[in-house]
Design a binder for these strands. Sequence first.
DNA 1: ACAACTTTCTCCACCCCCAGGACAAAGCCG
DNA 2: CGGCTTTGTCCTGGGGGTGGAGAAAGTTGT
Lengths: 396, 396
Amino acid sequence: MRRMTARPANAHQARLLRLLRDGGPNSRAQLGDQVDLSRSKLAVEVDRLLETGLVIADGLAASRGGRRSHNIRLAPELRFLGVDIGATSVDVAVTNAELEVLGHITQPMDVRDGPVAVFEQVLAMAAKLKASGLAEGFDGAGIGVPGPVRFPEGVPVAPPIMPGWDGFPVREALSQDLGCPVMVDNDVNLMAMGEQHAGVARSVHDFLCVKIGTGIGCGIVVGSEVYRGTTGSAGDIGHIQVDPDGRPCACGNKGCLEAHFSGSALARDAEEAAQDGRSPELAGRLEAAGALTGADVAAAAAAGDPTALELIREGGNRTGQVIAGLVSFFNPGLVVIGGGVTGLGHNLLAAIRTQVYRQSLPLATGNLPIVLGELGPVAGVIGAARLISDHLFSPA
Amino acid sequence: MRRMTARPANAHQARLLRLLRDGGPNSRAQLGDQVDLSRSKLAVEVDRLLETGLVIADGLAASRGGRRSHNIRLAPELRFLGVDIGATSVDVAVTNAELEVLGHITQPMDVRDGPVAVFEQVLAMAAKLKASGLAEGFDGAGIGVPGPVRFPEGVPVAPPIMPGWDGFPVREALSQDLGCPVMVDNDVNLMAMGEQHAGVARSVHDFLCVKIGTGIGCGIVVGSEVYRGTTGSAGDIGHIQVDPDGRPCACGNKGCLEAHFSGSALARDAEEAAQDGRSPELAGRLEAAGALTGADVAAAAAAGDPTALELIREGGNRTGQVIAGLVSFFNPGLVVIGGGVTGLGHNLLAAIRTQVYRQSLPLATGNLPIVLGELGPVAGVIGAARLISDHLFSPA
DNA sequence: ACAACTTTCTCCACCCCCAGGACAAAGCCG
DNA sequence: CGGCTTTGTCCTGGGGGTGGAGAAAGTTGT
């Protein structure tokens, strides 16, 4: 089937498309309530959108006490591809135009294999989703990569954990391969956009989204828009120093947050504790699996292992210390914690909260929720779909 | 003389007024180059502005190779009042509509005397400026206060160093007393706006402005707009912890940046060093003046006193440590250092730079200038004038 | 001094956007 | 079945805005 190539012709049309994306099917009258346009004008723009095929008529809406109105919705055959490239795994998902996830695949992977190998795998996953009948093609794709990105060009820059990606024209290459528009962003920013669109951050305009996975990053949302910084490296909090005499970090400094707490640091600490005999629980798991991950620590903690709990508490303290500083500085309306280690759950959250509430001033923390992300692994792919839809649903 | 009460009727007029404010007198043709409107439309809007009296014709411009054009400028009798309330002093200045400072008074003061006493003094200073013939009245006033402000209402909230100000309706009260529109903001934000308008931050869209005075604060500019946070306390970095086992702070915590380095902490450290006999230079100054200030430390350092130098270096390190974290997080295009202690000058700056460049990642620091503010004490009052002019030069 | 070219500015015809009223269609309620 | 409400369409008129024609005012070259 031919893909949609139309784009909104003006800001009104873009506005309407976003309303339909975020609010689902809507009647003309309901749309009219939200956009502050005359009925005539609204009708004209809706008719034009219908002509382009981006939206379709979709039966009658329930009556609101008078004549029933005709529903309008985004074309149901529109498809977005959301790709979330992590350090050790890839998530690929298909969504409709309302950003509902229709299909989702996760596969292990190693970013260090380089962009060519990774995108080969991503394209195969996308093909698989197509083959399963979820899509006949894609109208746009959003890609998240675990490192800083020069956003306008869609090119990773100096990514510490992904050598070989520096300067690789991700946007251009994938746009070619997929035959559709592509936008690229940092994975943490996409997680923030995902939680904003469909998760805990709905209706919050300024918030932080801390992702603790293999590394640690932070999505910054200002006025409902992602802030990326001058060179695209904003939110790179993994290398903030938490201890002047702390552990050496891969970046060359000492005492970076990431060196003390992150998916990989936690795994290493856990293995050490297992080998030292400090935790029989962890030792058992190490013997069974050959290596430990954050999930093992979470399980051990759930089983009541005091060493595992202590590791989590310690990491939460360190993270909370950094977040406390960011809260004082940024005064967000919400802090979302997400990423691989969210399995550590409320133990981690409690430690972070304690530290933040103790260290930041009451005015900043007074009404500040600190919560776990509610979308888990789909936050990234939804954010990716939202990224490209924001791009496509904007005036040409 | 009657004050101007007109306001721009639409976004185009607002745009033109700001161009004239920031670029000085301009010909219609030059304006046309900047606004992307047809000549006809531009002429209409300019004519309307002329009718309101907000702008006036101002002779002929130099030829650009053809017919000479008629210059347009903001009405020369427009006056803004800029007020910068510090912890221990007040700055009051008059500017014209182009935000050029026509007159400037500084007086010692104590915020702890409360808003009523302070504003009595401010009004007297404003009257003095009027009496000297610089203004016949004010078309608007911007006020900076040393603490967080609920911006839309112009009311200080929970200001730690100014008890008695909490909830005082500054905006409303001054608007009444001065008989003109008033806007209120944090003093640090105004300093940032001042440096952006007329100082080192021209042409930078995302930057941080760290003000080290009695306390320490940080103005945050995102996309050329001041970011204030959800409760107006963004940039309150004085109570970020720099040492878990550090000095007790007035806020109740330990190891806050402000407890280790700020105007007051530095003065205390200097007096201690003088009494301990560690620095004859400082001891001499203490005996002469009865108390020490940041300026004394600066003078001692300039005279080569090693203890004073060490105090500055130590403070710079501490500040740099915090800024390094903020740089990683925010990825600004510029960091401006200002406030009372700028007298410490390049010794301080060098210490901060060293720390930041060492601790932050190359991508964020690669092209990051860290500089002293170039406006000194007028940054605040210019920022205040800019605040109210931004308000007045926006569509009604 | 004069012609040719540039730039600036005004005037005007025309188009499009859009608001808002009139009116018809469709449904609810008693 | 008759009012009342909501929805959708049509139409008219006003305001915003573009772009061309042409006059006014200068500069440059010969």
